[in-house]
Design a protein around this nucleic acid. Structure first.
Length: 726
DNA sequence: CAAGTATGTCATTGC
DNA sequence: GGGCAATGACATACT
């Protein structure tokens, strides 16, 4: 019955409306898809490389490479154990995870990143003394980790029941509704109607209430006055770390964010959002930078060298790696450090610079991963060694830079998606309200008015039985509850054996006679847009049943009914049509023809009867059509709300991801510093960070290699993704 | 009185 | 080809 055209039209309409209402494309899936793998790798898989590092066996290895055995004493041993346990703890780092598995994934067709094994340097061999965290253990860990995520997410309120499938369900509902108005659906609508009417004032106050509800979660930007989620600053801080704000704050946004920003059109004021974001970032830049530098270098906070150094590495990398490149799915070995498992997840990112997607590249990639190179990008090495002096430089600076760059790109995505503080908080509020899927969750005035409109159109009566009447009319999908003359008409028609109001109320009455049982509730429905019966019927209707009434009231009623009669009813009366308009309209064709044949009707009468029938049917069709339209709009509204809720939830999760990632990086960095700082050469002197660096290998061992070698490897690996990209 | 809304009606289309 | 449902467009009444 439904034509293809209609489906297409409605589908396109819905799609268009959805897009326009949402305003911006929700790329969170893409983001998550690309974002998740590294995290998972960090958490689940390759991170074992860290834990497998067997520092407690340093003595043996160091012996062979010229480090004096005496330099590794028991203290070092236990320290290494402690560090090792800390590193292992990274595996259980709590990173929110949800139904990300459901998101569309992309596989990066690009090959693996291969590299050469370090040929020299100190090897910190692994031994059986370390726990094996590979193999089955990973699975256990994964489940544990995910459980931890879930718990944390629940604590954060970031876990929402999947709402996927709603759209599909709605589509089905819509489809069915076009042919037969589902009774339960109507009942629901009508219940909602009732609620809305009962608590109409609530709806009006909703916005303010929601605003109040939002208040606790909001922070107000001191500069812009805009409010943003309380957790947002934490997120921004991670970004702030990545931004070399002290060196060239404006350059980064321009260079990094503009490519994507300009590439997408958003109804939101991106510029304003960016300004807000930058203000937030700048507010936090100072404290984060100083604290981070302190942690990273164990240097006095006042040490300008170390502080500057912590910032300096960011600049060249950020400039070299633009988001534009990242969006091309280019590889960066930096993340391969964390994510040898990336190839096991069909999620090669198109947005993040991490993708050793070839499954064979795991060992080679990871084995060749030059930790020092990661931590000391070439640009950094050159400058840092010169400027930072003998003091421990930032071996993790590069890693952090890259990762932070990702954060920037993610935030850029957030901005691109129209994510601003106000919106996020709003969405957050929506997300908190867990009842979005039900119809009554449509707080929007429009939906309210729509519901009211739908109700009033079908039953404008204010009597006590209005709900029942409305429900009935809704159910009948005709939209017209009949008038006050129902009883009279029934009795009048009863003489003829026809009950027009029944068929009028229950348009499908002749299809489903059982629905007639609901008719008595309609006695007091008090308006009349229906086609009245023939004059004779009307006359008779007004007399006998109301004989107990005063004559004046009867006349008044007659006048009232007269006024309530439709034009066609008047015409029918004028033309002395011998049966009711309801019969004319609602009778099946056969019965209708039969009825006509029973009377000797003039051509004018026949014409009028046909017109009445046509108009009457069309009137009901129009009402049905409008009701359908209304339902469609309501469903779309609900879909939009659902999508917005999903978006808010995903953005929240993104914030959590970033926060966890930042913490993890800081921890790795500090551990690296601690480990490196405790290494001693044969003379018992510490190694210079400017000359040596630690490098993890695929087998879990850690090498202490000269920095020059590390730089070479880093450069080599850096070139490969670029070449492949071309 | 203008604007918005609700409803009826007509014309058209497709089943 | 008639009957009919659906629907866009317009008219009208009402708020």
């Amino acid at each position: 019955m439904l034509s293809l055209k209609k489906y297409l039209t409605e589908g396109l309409l819905q799609f268009t409306i959805l897009l326009s209402l949402i305003g911006v494309r929700v790329d969170v899936d893409t983001y998550l898809t690309s974002q998740l793998p590294p995290l998972r790798e960090i958490i689940l898989g390759p991170s074992s490389a860290y834990t497998q590092t067997q520092f407690h066996n340093l003595r043996n290895t160091l012996d062979g490479y010229g480090i004096h055995p005496k330099s590794i004493d028991l203290d070092n041993y236990f320290t290494a154990r402690r560090l090792l346990s800390q590193v292992r703890a990274l595996d259980r780092f709590q990173v929110p995870t949800t139904e990300v598995n459901a998101w569309l994934v992309h596989r990066d067709p690009e090959g693996s990143v291969s590299g050469s094994q370090p040929s020299s340097g100190l090897t910190l061999e692994s031994s059986s003394g370390l726990q094996d965290v590979t193999g089955p253990d990973n699975g256990v860990r994964e489940s544990e980790t995910e459980q931890g995520f879930s718990e944390e997410l629940e604590d954060l309120g970031a876990v929402a029941p999947p709402v996927s499938g709603d759209l599909t369900k709605e589509d089905i509902d819509l489809g069915a509704g076009r042919e037969i108005f589902d009774y339960s659906h109507r009942q629901k609508e009508q219940d909602v109607d009732k609620e809305l009417r009962d608590g109409g004032e609530q709806e009006d106050t909703w916005p303010s209430e929601s605003a109040e509800a939002l208040a606790p979660n909001l922070l107000v930007d001191g500069e812009t006055g805009e409010s943003f989620p309380a957790q947002f600053p934490a997120d921004v801080s991670s970004i702030t770390e990545a931004v070399p704000s002290e060196s060239e704050p404006p350059a980064l946004p321009n260079n990094l964010l503009s490519p994507l920003l300009t590439g997408t059109e958003s109804p939101f004021d991106l510029e304003q959002q960016w300004q807000d974001l930058m203000s937030i970032m700048e507010m936090q830049a100072m404290e984060v930078n100083t604290s981070t530098s302190e942690i990273m270098y164990n240097a006095p906070s006042g040490d300008p060298l170390s502080t500057n150094y912590s910032l300096a590495p960011n600049t060249p990398i950020n400039q070299n790696v633009s988001l534009h490149q990242a969006s091309l799915g280019g590889c960066s070995q930096d993340f391969s450090l964390f994510s040898p498992e990336v190839e096991s997840l069909p999620v090669a990112s198109t947005l993040l610079p991490l993708t050793p997607s070839n499954s064979t590249s795991l060992n080679s990639t990871f084995g060749s991963t030059n930790l020092a190179g990661l931590f000391f990008p070439p640009q950094l090495n050159g400058t840092a060694n010169d400027t930072a002096g003998p003091e421990l430089p930032d071996p993790l600076g590069g890693l952090l830079d890259e990762a932070m760059l990702d954060e920037i790109s993610l935030m850029d995505l957030a901005i691109e998606e129209g994510f601003n503080a106000g919106q996020a908080s709003q969405l957050e509020e929506e997300f908190d309200s867990d009842s979005g899927l039900s119809l009554d969750s449509s707080h929007s005035p429009s939906s309210l008015s729509s519901l009211e409109g739908s109700t009033s159109s079908s039953s404008s009566s204010s009597s006590a039985s209005s709900s029942a009447a409305s429900s009935f009319s809704e159910e009948g999908a005709v939209g017209y509850s009949s008038d006050s003359e129902t009883l009279d008409l029934e009795e009048a028609e009863g003489a003829v054996g026809y009950q027009p109001e029944y068929s009028k109320f229950c348009r499908m009455s002749y299809q489903d006679p059982s629905q007639l049982s609901c008719l008595p509730y309609l006695e007091h429905v008090g308006h009349n847009h229906t086609y009245n019966m023939a004059p004779s019927a009307l006359d008779s209707a007004n007399l006998p049943p109301t004989s107990t009434l005063k004559k004046g009231s009867k006349e008044k009623q007659a006048d009232f009914l007269d006024k309530q009669m439709s034009r066609d009813e008047h015409r029918a009366r004028a033309m002395k049509i011998p049966f009711t308009n309801d019969k004319i309209i609602n009778l099946p064709v056969e019965e209708f023809n039969e009825l006509l044949s029973k009377y000797q009707l003039s051509e004018a009468q026949l014409s009028l009867i046909r017109d009445i029938r046509r108009r009457g049917k069309n009137k009901m069709a129009a009402q049905n059509c409008r009701k359908r339209k209304l339902d469609t709009i309501l469903n779309l509204e609900r879909d939009v709300e659902d999508l917005q809720r999903d978006k808010a939830r995903l953005l929240r999760e993104k914030v959590e991801f970033l926060r966890s990632l930042r913490q993890m990086k800081q921890k790795v960095q500090s551990l690296y510093q601690e480990v490196f700082g405790r290494l001693r050469d044969e003379n018992g002197r510490p190694y210079s960070p400017s000359q040596y660096a630690l490098q993890y290998t695929g087998d879990g061992s850690v090498l202490l290699i000269p920095r020059t070698l590390a730089d070479q490897q880093a450069r080599r690996q850096e070139r490969k993704p670029k070449d492949r990209r071309k």
